[in-house]
């Protein structure tokens, strides 16, 4: 009935059409701004918490962390980071002593980019832990890079010099070798390659072992960099 009445009615003016769409767009815009503003704090908090948990996971024994931004050839302790700047996270134990860096890295996996975070102890040149942050690897096979506790666990006290090598399962002999996952060799090798590449990149940038930026607030006086 309604539709037949509309059929017979004269065509509405263009103004009415424009106004209808404008009002609909306006209301929709306001609704979207409202939901964006009201969920933003939760979303930001979630992301920060996820990152914190990941840092604590890859650096065992850490109780404090701070962001270190690579700026003009130095690591700067700061909360702010420009889009083109890269950052690592410094992990410190209860006494404020430096434990290691948590370094984010990403690279191509079997299906899509794998994003991960690994813990690095510069003194021993060891990988302390690895956590996959982002991956779309094949369920049941490639996703073992984060579901297989044995594989994830093999990234602890793992020597990174000269580089990490993924070998066939059971063939691990040297401290810089890890067992690849059976059926997910490409994904395992991708993880290893991503860490090796990130390590090659960051080893040029990180300060020599022993002169890491101290934890802000508790570090010795004159450390500089912190306002």
């Amino acid at each position: 009935m309604t539709s037949s009445a509309q059929m017979n009615a004269p065509a509405p003016s263009s103004l009415r059409l424009v106004l209808t769409l404008a009002i609909a767009g306006l209301i929709s815009g306001i609704a979207i701004i409202g939901i964006y503003e009201s969920t933003l704090p939760t979303i930001t908090a979630n992301k920060a918490r996820e990152l914190r948990e990941a840092v604590f996971k890859v650096l065992p024994g850490v109780s404090e962390m701070q962001q270190l931004v690579y700026r003009d050839g130095n690591l700067v302790v700061t909360e702010e980071r420009r889009k083109d700047e890269q950052a690592v996270y410094g992990g410190y134990d209860r006494d404020g002593d430096f434990v290691g860096y948590a370094i984010p890295a990403a690279g191509p996996g079997f299906q899509d980019t794998i994003g991960l975070l690994y813990g690095f102890a510069p003194q021993q040149k060891h990988v302390l832990g690895m956590e996959i942050l982002e991956s779309r690897e094949t369920p049941g096979l490639g996703d073992k890079i984060y579901k297989d506790a044995e594989f994830v666990g093999s990234f602890s006290a793992l020597s990174i010099e000269p580089n990490i090598v993924a070998v066939k399962k059971g063939a691990k002999a040297r401290p810089n070798e890890i067992d690849a996952i059976t059926g997910a060799t490409i994904s395992s090798k991708a993880v290893v390659r991503i860490i090796n590449e990130a390590h090659a990149e960051w080893s040029k940038r990180l300060p020599p072992a022993g002169s890491e930026p101290p934890l802000r607030g508790t570090g010795p006086a004159g450390s500089g960099g912190s306002p």
Partner: peptide, 12 residues
């Protein structure tokens, strides 16, 4: 108006 109904549906 029925001329712009699909656009309105999509906005909603």
């Amino acid at each position: 108006p029925k001329q712009v109904r699909i656009s309105c549906f999509i906005i909603i």
